[in-house]
């Protein structure tokens, strides 16, 4: 695709996103709002997992830190109202999430593959437990955030626009990363970390940068999500299924690609919210089943799949 086509498509998408709330009902606006949020999570996870090859199984920890930081700030300094009142807490949520990542990055990024993935799972469990059980964090009883929605505006429309803007911002960052020196370093790290070092890539520094950037992005989304909930407890934001979802979006759409997470999120949310919206009890199962199916059927994701032809299976694992 050439530049003009992409530019044109982007413009059309922007106009569509802007006018869509005038055309569809509140339920679908809410679904779209969740879609933007979810796609944003996927895009953020993809920076670390897709570009750098460090699969985190505990990224939900950044959602939690972002949301709770915003709420704590509101409680300490007193919350204003109106859309501008959320700017500072949201930025603080993103930054604290990044700071936390910076602190744990040094030991955790020494681990590779499976060990890193599970260590992150552990981090998310431990932080959730601390937020829940240590009373000053108030995760057990829950925290409030005042509504920043301007009077007269429907709530779902407000968050729809905010999440749309944030998703665009995250996509822009991801696009920039992918085509920059930073992105090349991450790809080299993913492909072969030792060789990357041998080619003069300061791998430690870049891994850490990707980890922190990814955490800041998720923290940002988490803080806004906290506002959209208004009241939440530990386990409404430290949710294990989200850690899985971020991976799933990328896997389905195409891991390491720019738009893969967005496409994956669109597909999953269409399935779970629109087609199976009534089966709330089964969401965990549906997501799980999708992951398993996708990995078994098209390991490269939609954007990367060369459809498997019979007899062209990669030779692995030996004869039957």
């Amino acid at each position: 695709m050439n530049r003009l086509v992409i530019l044109l498509l982007t413009a059309v998408a922007a106009v569509l996103v802007a006018v869509l709330p005038m055309l569809v009902g509140p339920y679908y606006i809410r679904v779209l709002q969740i879609f933007f949020f979810s796609a944003g999570l996927g895009v953020a996870w993809n920076i670390l997992g897709g570009y750098a090859g460090y699969w985190s199984f505990g990224h939900t920890v950044s959602i939690g830190i972002g949301a709770f930081t915003a709420a704590w700030l509101g409680m300490i300094f007193g919350a204003g109202s109106g859309p501008w009142s959320m700017v500072l807490p949201v930025i603080a949520g993103a930054l604290l999430s990044g700071l936390f990542a910076l602190v744990i990055a040094y030991p955790l990024l020494r681990l590779r593959g499976t060990y890193f993935a599970i260590a992150m799972l552990g981090v998310s469990q431990v932080v959730a437990e601390l937020v829940n059980n240590v009373s000053i964090f108030q995760g057990g009883i829950g925290v409030f955030l005042p509504s920043p929605v301007p009077s007269g505006m429907p709530v779902e429309r407000f968050y729809y626009y905010i999440f749309a803007v944030v998703l665009s911002l995250l996509l822009l960052i991801s696009w920039w990363v992918k085509r920059s020196r930073f992105g090349y370093a991450l790809l080299a790290i993913r492909e072969d970390e030792d060789t990357a070092m041998m080619l003069g890539v300061p791998t430690e520094r870049y891994k850490m940068a990707a980890f922190v950037l990814s955490a800041v992005m998720v923290g940002l989304l988490g803080a806004i999500y906290g506002y959209s909930l208004g009241y939440f407890t530990t386990y409404s934001v430290f949710r294990l299924d989200w850690s899985l979802n971020m991976i799933v979006f990328c896997l389905i759409g195409g891991i390491g690609t720019l738009m893969g997470p967005v496409i994956g999120a669109a597909l999953i949310l269409f399935l779970t919210q629109v087609l199976l919206g009534g089966f709330l009890d089964l969401h965990l199962m549906i997501t799980g089943a999708l992951v398993v199916a996708v990995i078994l059927i098209m390991p490269g994701g939609i954007l990367r799949t060369r459809w498997r032809l019979p007899g062209r299976k990669p030779a692995r694992g030996g004869a039957e």
Partner: peptide, 24 residues
């Protein structure tokens, strides 16, 4: 199926996904 088709990380995700299904 998973180990004959996917990477180590992807197999890990399969067991993660199965855990979700069974937990549900």
């Amino acid at each position: 199926w998973a180990i004959s088709r996917a990477s180590v990380e992807a197999s890990l995700v399969v067991t993660f996904g199965m855990a979700m299904i069974l937990r549900n």
